[in-house]
Amino acid sequence: MSGIALSRLAQERKAWRKDHPFGFVAVPTKNPDGTMNLMNWECAIPGKKGTPWEGGLFKLRMLFKDDYPSSPPKCKFEPPLFHPNVYPSGTVCLSILEEDKDWRPAITIKQILLGIQELLNEPNIQDPAQAEAYTIYCQNRVEYEKRVRAQAKKFAPS
């Protein structure tokens, strides 16, 4: 494992614990031996107030490669969400998460999670990743928002 990646992720964890947006979660997972795995984080993004996503808490896994922060983490909703920019596998399609697009090593975990929260309610229809959600979003916004509200209710924190 890269010392650069681990040191950056340790800084990220410290900064997150000191200050993070209300309702968001970002925690490194534990290895079988109980030690912390900084390369694999369990996160959760709350649906934004005043949107059909409100009330939901959407679980996301963030996986970092050894060359982080040169390369972005892979962000994957578990379980996958109904959304035009979420692949059926759950992987998020967002330009700041793509090395050859808008990724920059200075982007923080907090910025990534806030960017994904923004994307939930403002899909990028130029870059669809899920045919069904994309089609319904474009053709029947009322039905799309109904499905999103049902999903938010399903993923409401207990």
Rank of each mutant, 00 (worst) to 15 (best):
G3R: 07
G3V: 10
I4S: 03
L6N: 13
S7G: 08
R8G: 01
A10F: 11
R13T: 00
A15K: 14
D19S: 04
P21Y: 04
F24L: 06
V25N: 04
A26R: 03
V27D: 05
N31K: 11
P32A: 13
P32W: 12
D33V: 01
D33G: 03
T35M: 04
M36S: 05
N37M: 11
M39T: 10
W41Y: 02
C43S: 10
A44P: 00
A44T: 09
I45V: 14
P46F: 05
G50M: 01
E54Y: 07
G56C: 00
G56W: 01
L57D: 05
F58T: 06
F58G: 05
K59G: 08
L60A: 12
R61V: 10
M62F: 14
F64R: 01
Y68K: 04
P69S: 02
S70C: 13
S70K: 07
S71P: 06
P73N: 02
P73H: 02
P73L: 08
K74E: 15
K76T: 15
F77P: 01
F77C: 03
P80A: 12
L81Q: 01
L81T: 03
F82V: 03
H83F: 06
P84M: 14
P84E: 02
V86R: 02
Y87S: 01
S89W: 09
S89F: 12
V92Y: 04
L97R: 02
E98F: 08
E99A: 12
D100N: 14
K101P: 08
K101R: 13
D102V: 08
W103M: 05
I107Q: 11
I109S: 05
L114V: 15
I116S: 11
L119D: 04
L120D: 02
N121W: 09
E122Q: 12
E122S: 12
E122W: 09
P123A: 06
P123N: 01
N124W: 09
I125A: 08
Q126Y: 10
D127R: 02
P128I: 05
Q130N: 13
Q130H: 09
A131R: 08
E132I: 06
A133K: 04
Y134F: 09
I136F: 13
I136Y: 11
R141S: 09
V142K: 15
E143V: 13
Y144C: 02
Y144A: 00
Y144P: 04
K146N: 11
K146G: 12
V148N: 00
V148I: 15
S158F: 09
